[in-house]
Simulated assay, not measured.
Amino acid sequence: MSEVTAIGLGEILWDVLPEGRQLGGAPANFAYQVNALGGTGVPVSRVGDDDLGREALDILQANGLCTDYVSIDPEHPTGTVLAELDKDGVATYTFPDDVAWDFLTCDDATRQLAERADVICFGTLAQRCPTSRQAIRQVLEAAPGALKVYDINLRQDFFTPGRIRDSLDRADVLKINDDELMMITGPFSLPSGQKEALARLLALHDLKLAVLTRGGEGSLIISPDGISDLPGEPVEVRDTIGAGDAFSAAMVLAYLKGWSLDEINRYAAQVAAHVCSREGAMTDMPPELRLK
């Protein structure tokens, strides 16, 4: 799997939890998990010229990730987010404004990386600022051959229907969870049923896959040719931070290997369940879950 290069495009930030802080951000988590599963994950992001930024780079490098495409912002601080866990380990987040990843840029080196990438995973949160939104579009446009995965990642009020539609039109794969699907059902005039709503999005935006994660209730994958609807994997949840990003990483790698929808769905769910059983997003990955 080392020949697969997958970009995690967007925010790198620190999750500030009651027991301390952990490095995260959905694109960075995605890149980490691609690496952990046997591919080559590359974060494309921005951190501040501060202690938190330097520590973030050190941690990424210590975990085997290339940081050549994480730029340094001399004016804005490294991103942080207050993460609060409920009794089931499910996180809610509060994001400060005007942090380094809001000012993401697309330079020549990043364009060259995008040109040879097999996968680019991007979300909505990192598009809240016009500067980073333009950079994300430029990276996507520089990669006509890459599989583009839109992890919708709706947070607070940092999204609009128009921004979501634009992202869907640039994507090949939609990854969404059940809460997020409910949030867009009204504005997008989607059917009330999950399968019907995913099928509508798949058809309207010419997607190759539409993927719904439902926590302990399992996951649903729809393609133009089939459907996979599987129950959840049994797991004792420590926290859910990064589980969706791990699902995305495993799903993409399995899809590129040509697996069936059920095989993709089951494998991605197993990887996500493992992450839920550990604290934080950048967890260890047992050898049996790595793709050879």
Rank of each mutant, 00 (worst) to 15 (best):
F122M: 01
A100E: 01
D172I: 13
Q127W: 07
I184F: 00
T105W: 00
D166G: 10
L104H: 05
R170P: 03
I164E: 14
A114E: 00
Q134L: 09
Q134F: 05
P161I: 11
T160V: 11
A117C: 05
V119F: 10
T185H: 02
L181K: 08
I152N: 10
D118K: 02
P161R: 04
I164L: 12
M182G: 11
Q134R: 12
C129T: 06
Q127S: 07
Q134M: 04
N177F: 08
Q112V: 01
A117N: 01
I164Y: 13
L168V: 12
R155F: 09
D178V: 07
V149T: 13
D108V: 09
Q138D: 15
K175D: 03
T160R: 11
I136R: 06
L147C: 12
I120K: 00
K148G: 12
P161Y: 06
V173R: 10
M182H: 05
K175W: 07
Y150S: 07
P161Q: 10
I176K: 01
N153V: 14
L174Y: 09
S167L: 12
F159P: 00
W101P: 05
A146S: 15
I176F: 03
L147R: 11
I164D: 11
D151N: 15
I136Q: 06
D166C: 02
F159S: 15
I120W: 06
A142V: 08
Q156I: 09
F159T: 07
I164V: 15
R165W: 00
L154G: 12
V139K: 14
I152W: 06
L104R: 01
F103R: 02
Q127K: 01
R163A: 15
R165V: 14
R111E: 10
A142Q: 00
A126L: 07
A146P: 08
T185L: 07
R137N: 11
R137Y: 13
T105V: 09
R165D: 13
R128C: 10
E180L: 13
R155T: 07
C121S: 11
K148F: 04
R116D: 01
M183E: 04
D172Q: 14
L140D: 12
R133M: 04
T105D: 13
A117S: 09
N177H: 00
G162A: 15
W101H: 08
W101K: 06
M183A: 15
R128V: 09
A126H: 03
T124R: 06
A117W: 01
T131N: 06
R137A: 13
R163I: 14
E141C: 03
D108H: 08
A114D: 08
G145D: 14
D118Q: 00
D118H: 08
D107M: 05
F159D: 11
R137M: 08
N153F: 11
D169V: 06
D157I: 08
C106E: 03
A100H: 09
A135H: 08
A109T: 12
A143N: 09
Q156F: 13
T185N: 04
F158K: 14
T124P: 03
K148C: 09
R133H: 10
R133E: 08
F159V: 06
P130S: 04
A117T: 00
E115K: 10
L181I: 03
E141S: 13
S132D: 00
D108A: 07
L147Q: 09
R170S: 14
A109I: 05
C106I: 02
Y150V: 13
F158G: 10
V119Y: 07
V149R: 05
G186W: 05
I164N: 09
T124A: 03
S167E: 07
A126K: 02
